[in-house]
Simulated assay, not measured.
Amino acid sequence: MNPGNGPDDAAGSAGPPEAVGRETVLVPRNAASARDTVTRLLASRPAGHRLAEVVVADALLVTSELVTNAFRHGGGLTGFTAELTDEGLLLAVADASPHAPVTSAHSPRTAHVGGYGWPLVCRLAERVSITFHPGGKRIVALIALS
């Protein structure tokens, strides 16, 4: 996959399909495509298991942030899976950077653009882990759905 200029500009063909729950997905070309995948997956839950809007919004925000950061700071998205488990929504996002996400401190008195995504992911996810491998890293986030 060849990254574009940003999370909504990635060019190139998607990677091979991966089985995720009951849905087959391709490595998304951008953050919008990743959100669509997660939306479909969450909608596939059995009737009677409707999720609160805030839970869906949190899941989509975490998806957007992880995929956007892979494009902007991680050298491109190299892998993506979304899976429903007994614990919640399990997202795995891989990129080409061997560096961990950076948390930067901001003074509340100054206007600052950017730097809020990673702390937001860590706050909204039940668990977050980073695994480094040759050629990049993989971030796994679990979002509770209850």
Rank of each mutant, 00 (worst) to 15 (best):
V27A: 09
R29S: 12
A31W: 05
A34M: 03
A34Y: 02
V38K: 00
T39I: 04
L41N: 01
L41P: 00
A43R: 07
S44P: 01
R45Q: 14
P46V: 04
H49R: 15
A52N: 08
A52K: 12
A52M: 09
E53W: 06
V54A: 12
V54I: 10
V55R: 12
V56G: 05
D58L: 05
A59S: 10
L60Q: 05
V62N: 10
V62W: 08
V67G: 04
A70N: 08
A70E: 13
R72L: 15
H73L: 10
G74M: 12
G74H: 11
G74Y: 08
G74I: 13
G74S: 11
G76I: 15
G76A: 15
G76Q: 15
G76D: 14
T78M: 14
G79P: 02
F80R: 10
F80K: 08
A82H: 00
T85G: 00
T85H: 02
D86A: 14
L91Y: 02
A92Q: 12
A94F: 04
P98T: 12
P98Y: 04
H99R: 15
A100Y: 01
V102W: 02
V102K: 08
T103F: 08
A105D: 13
H106T: 09
P108I: 14
R109N: 10
T110K: 10
G114W: 08
G115Q: 11
G115V: 10
G115D: 12
W118L: 09
W118H: 03
L120S: 07
V121G: 01
C122M: 08
R123T: 07
R123E: 13
A125N: 05
A125C: 04
A125Y: 05
V128F: 02
V128M: 07
T131A: 15
F132L: 14
F132M: 11
